[in-house]
Design a binder for these strands. Structure first.
Length: 114
DNA sequence: AGATTGACGTGTG
DNA sequence: CCACACGCCAATC
């Protein structure tokens, strides 16, 4: 049975859309949740594709250091940072502050639902 | 088909 | 904490 066995990209979109307001997560966390912990890069690639498919809050997805590595892919230069700041996330020099409190882990919030 | 790149992560020094 | 190297897997050249 392959029911909801969506593509890797589709899963990434789902998790990304589940990220609550004012929260952020990392590519690795999503990748791990999808069962591809060693494919964090693929999450980024999926995001790149999502940018041309649906409105996925990619600005809420950063690397584990809380660094806005993908801001360069957004329209403009500091659009990603502005979006985060607009949600109450403090961002300095492309790096999220208080990441420990803002970090959103699908495993913790979604309590895993395999 | 082989080499390179990429929105990452982890390990080592 | 920072610098460098390796692994991962798909897309692109």
């Amino acid at each position: 049975m392959k029911e909801e066995n969506q593509n890797f990209f589709q899963k990434v979109y789902e998790v990304a859309k589940l990220i609550p307001y004012g929260r952020v997560t990392s590519y690795g966390a999503i990748a791990k949740y999808l069962g591809a912990a060693r494919s964090a890069r693929m999450v980024g690639w999926a995001m790149n594709a999502s940018h041309n498919m649906e409105d996925v809050p990619a600005h809420r997805v950063v690397n584990k250091k809380g660094l806005l590595t993908g801001k360069h892919h957004f329209d403009g230069t500091n659009l990603m940072q502005q979006l985060l700041e607009n949600e109450g996330v403090e961002v300095i020099e492309n790096q999220i502050q208080n990441l420990d409190a803002l970090f959103w882990d699908p495993f913790l919030e979604l309590e895993i639902d395999l």
